[in-house]
Simulated assay, not measured.
Amino acid sequence: MSSRTSSHFSGHSRTVSNRIAVFAMDAAERAGVSPQLFTTRTGISPQELVDRSGRIDAARHRRVVELMAHVGVSSRAMPDLPHMLFPDFPVLGNLCLNARTLREALESYQTFRPLIGEFDFLGYRETPEHAQFEYIAEFAPASGFQALSNFQVLASLIRAYDGLEQTVFRVSLMGPAVPGANDIGEYFGAAVRYSADANRLQFASALLDAPLVHYNATLAPFLRQQAQHELLRIQRGHRFSYSVEHLISEIIRDPGEEGYASSSLLAQTCQRLNTSRWTLHRRLQSEGLHFTELESRVRYKEACRLLSETTLSLGHISEQLGFSSQSAFTRFFRTRHDVPPLAFRQRAQLG
């Protein structure tokens, strides 16, 4: 394995899976932060977390990390599911849990870790006695809680290749001990060292080349191909169009005193991106999209949010979203949902 892997890719804006934001929101709620406050602090709406393939841009991911560093994270927020994050990332999980050896599984994890997020660094070093990962965070690097989450995932994967599941990990974390420190020590099999100079996870290198008894050689190349296709989709799919969609959402939520119309929305978007309409349309077309499609998508998401989270009248919502009338808004909503706006609101209020 390489000495250091980075989640950076050149030539596009980096993103992280919205599943990370879901985990963070759940942990923040356990720490006393309401979902509404989480949305306000991070700029991530509940609707954006519904699409399991959705991605979050760098600016809002940073807000999530900084919020979590501020409120503190308890070890009791650890998922109880076996193999940690993999149920939410089945493409990555299938590949990593069907390798000939643990060494190959860890190499696959490092290569395709961007399926989870394209941030931070995960370094690797090996001696005849020990294998060691070092985690370097881009945002809130001194807190240690991001390293803890990554080390839990790695430990879960490593133990999947240890038939006895008794692997002991030596873990060092930057920052002070988190609530439930004893639970963390029990999880890793040894006490965790805090206020360290780096975030490190160490285990016996003898485990690296132990074979996986249930390895499926026929299935393995197909799983890797699937992971490669998914990584390519992320690199190509959630890029310029994602930035445009997020910008449209910002303008619609805060249109200014004069409000907005479709024509002014396009003009404002181009102005903020410092690009021409022709360039904007060309770049969106290269991703198989059109500006009006993104606008409709954002208006629908915002409509769902306003109907679910506010008591604004339909007339007010239709005006805020730039529709010519309430009936026009209702027709728009019905083309994208099986019920009219009021019925949707009633369902949302019933949970």
Rank of each mutant, 00 (worst) to 15 (best):
E66V: 04
Q36Y: 11
R345M: 01
A58P: 05
Y194T: 13
P114I: 08
V16P: 05
L212E: 03
I184T: 08
R76Q: 15
F222Y: 09
Y161K: 03
S262M: 11
D26K: 07
L115P: 03
H70R: 12
C304S: 10
Q326F: 00
Q226F: 05
V298Y: 00
E302R: 11
G175R: 09
V65K: 01
R19K: 14
L247A: 12
R297E: 13
Q152G: 10
I56T: 07
R331N: 07
R277Y: 05
R125I: 00
L49C: 02
L219C: 10
R239A: 10
R336A: 07
A206C: 15
N216A: 12
Q146W: 11
S249G: 10
H290F: 14
R55A: 03
R125E: 13
I251C: 07
R62V: 05
R19T: 01
Y109W: 09
Y194F: 15
S17I: 04
V22T: 14
R331S: 07
S74K: 07
T42R: 01
L122V: 04
L102T: 07
R224V: 08
I116R: 04
H337C: 11
D162L: 12
F89P: 00
L265M: 08
T39I: 00
S17E: 07
Y187I: 09
A31Q: 11
L81K: 12
L106S: 06
D254R: 11
A147W: 01
F133R: 03
R282D: 14
F333Y: 02
N182G: 13
D254G: 06
V171G: 01
F86R: 02
M84I: 00
Q110T: 08
P341K: 08
T127G: 14
L223K: 00
L266C: 09
F151H: 02
F188C: 07
M174G: 03
Q166Y: 01
A147V: 10
V192T: 04
